[in-house]
Design a protein around this nucleic acid. Structure first.
Lengths: 112, 112
DNA sequence: TCAATACTCAACCATATGGTTTAGTATAGC
DNA sequence: GCTATACTAAACCATATGGTTGAGTATTGA
């Protein structure tokens, strides 16, 4: 599995995205991280494992607790891949803008 | 499944990302699209279906052919989600930069 | 030392995924 | 109308995924 495969696959689950969102506020123990989710801690632990394997979070063992923090650099690769398509979706919005502009005023293609 | 679930899941397969890459050059018939892949046309058709369900490609039936084109707006939602983490990974790179800079020269934080 | 805490591991289950093959449908063109 | 083309659909298979429970391990703290 390529790195991008793993990254996008890890991001394709809502629970895992919620875990990442929680970690934006800073490092958190696995048990605290799992607290709001309506599933077993084992399940959350598995999700964290997936995120860790994808390089999206770093887990550090400290005594009997595991401390998780974001490792956003893997996201950058995913973001970079998407970036290559940015001009295409911008173009499609411009076309849409021209379309609506044309309905109002055939000379104008501008948008706010 | 949320839209983001579907989008990221669709992007997590290398074949599907390759399909999207091919479509960057413009619209293509399904059979032409399938040609370089070492799998059955049925398999490619299924991948296109996944991309279509995720809103990443638009498929238009014209006679007996299906014409596929990029619909990059769904990518924008994914990109936007990742964007929220940009400041975090930038911060982590800055820290890394400072770290290496500190090894060379404690006054400089610049990199090539 | 002993109990509680914070996990991991293993086994299991249901469903999803990525592929195949075979058969069927709709259209094009002779 | 008949045949080739370009698909889609259905059935099947192996493996992956997301969840569970129950047992095991390591660490803390009284």
């Amino acid at each position: 599995m390529s790195d991008l495969d793993a990254t996008f696959a890890a991001l394709s689950d809502g629970t895992r995205r919620a875990i990442l969102a929680r970690l934006r506020d800073g490092e958190m123990r696995l048990s605290d991280l799992a607290e709001p989710f309506e599933m077993s801690q084992t399940a959350v632990s598995k999700h964290v494992r997936v995120l860790s394997d994808a390089g999206l979070v770093a887990v550090e063992k400290r005594g009997r607790t595991r401390h998780c923090r974001l490792n956003a650099s893997a996201m950058q690769a995913a973001s970079h891949w998407l970036e290559d398509y940015r001009e295409i979706w911008i173009a499609s919005f411009e076309n849409l803008g021209s379309y609506f502009a044309g309905k109002r005023n055939p000379d104008s293609g501008e948008q706010s």
